[in-house]
């Protein structure tokens, strides 16, 4: 594609974006709706022209009158096609957090405030891979698949909503810049963990201690053992207090430190930190995260993990684009 065309496309997209700002909920108004005859419409017009010429040449008023009715149908269909998608409300709900390169499904809700149902709608990122929504009575939930390419707040490209209903002569469409309120984590890179003192973490360093994982056996109850771990069934049989023993990888305390990775570029550092965080979470280690401007104290569990991943995703991100 030539550079000139790219410039035009860029300008157009910029204009479109300014005209149609990003938001969570969009009501299709005349400002947002575009309408133009499509290929079928032009075929119709060609045949209509032929019919009118036939009517003129044979001086046949009846053929002409059918021609006029068809001209008029074309005009009516402009309004009908427009009305079919006008005032539709499209709402973006929050999508799940995901990693760069994963497929995420974006939840959309279509609300029809009118009494008459909307029909034959297509929604998609491009014209040829659009998803059909045959009828929207009052509300319809759909999901669009999307693969994010950038970390940060999810930045979905413009979505096209279009319809040719009822006569197929015109395409009526709108561009949706929707804000899905999701966070995209960096794509994790799996590297062996390095702590801030420069030591690697080998498998040999992980001592097996009594933890919460695999059931290993029973031992005599000792003072301080949790009552939850007492094998009560055993006690009922033998009147002896036994404690259940589990195999566990000892969760050590890790500090995921930005400065360890000096020399790599920012994005790569974030990806490695992301990988480490996942690794640590998997191994049930407690970990803390230290990146410039933000430190997340030692912790563990899903919530902690997501907090750390979100911090990585939004590092130096500031605002949504």
């Amino acid at each position: 594609m030539s550079i000139g065309l790219n410039v035009i496309r860029h300008r157009f997209n910029a204009w479109l974006k300014k005209r149609l700002p990003l938001s969570e909920e969009i009501q299709l108004s005349q400002k947002r709706i575009f309408i133009f005859p499509n290929k079928v419409g032009f075929l119709f017009l060609v045949l209509l022209g032929l019919l009118l010429v036939t009517g003129i040449n044979y001086q046949n008023n009846l053929i002409l009158s059918i021609g006029f009715i068809m001209v008029s149908l074309f005009v009516t269909s402009i309004i009908a096609t427009y009305q079919n998608i006008a005032s539709l409300v499209i709402k973006a709900s929050a999508c799940d957090a995901c990693f760069v390169g994963d497929t995420v499904s974006l939840p959309l809700t279509l609300n029809n405030p009118n009494k008459t149902s909307k029909a034959g709608l297509f929604v998609g990122f491009d014209h040829s891979h659009a998803q059909l929504i045959p009828v929207v009575e009052s509300q319809q939930n759909i999901r669009l698949s999307y693969v994010p390419q950038q970390r940060g707040y999810i930045n979905v490209p413009k979505i096209k909503l279009f319809s040719v209903y009822p006569l197929g002569l015109l395409t009526c469409w709108s561009w949706l810049y929707l804000d899905f309120n999701g966070v995209v984590y960096p794509k994790p890179v799996e590297l062996p963990f390095r702590s801030s003192d420069g030591e690697g973490l080998d498998d040999t360093d992980q001592s097996i201690q009594s933890g919460m994982d695999e059931f290993d056996g029973l031992r005599m109850y000792q003072k301080g053992d949790s009552l939850k771990r007492v094998a009560w069934k055993q006690y009922a049989k033998t009147q002896q207090l036994m404690t259940k023993q589990y195999l566990d990888y000892q969760g050590d305390e890790r500090c995921l430190d930005w400065s360890v990775l000096s020399g790599f570029d920012v994005e790569y550092r974030l990806q490695v930190l992301c990988g480490w965080a996942l690794q640590a979470h998997q191994q049930q280690s407690e970990f803390s995260l230290k990146i410039p401007g933000q430190t997340i104290p030692l912790g563990s569990g899903e919530q902690h993990l997501h907090q750390c991943l979100k911090a990585l995703a939004l590092f130096n991100y500031g605002v949504k684009k």
Binding site: V71, S72, L73, T76
Partner: peptide, 12 residues
């Protein structure tokens, strides 16, 4: 649609 189109057709 046909009914809505008739007035314009008549005018034409």
């Amino acid at each position: 649609l046909l009914l809505k189109s008739l007035p314009l057709a008549l005018l034409l």
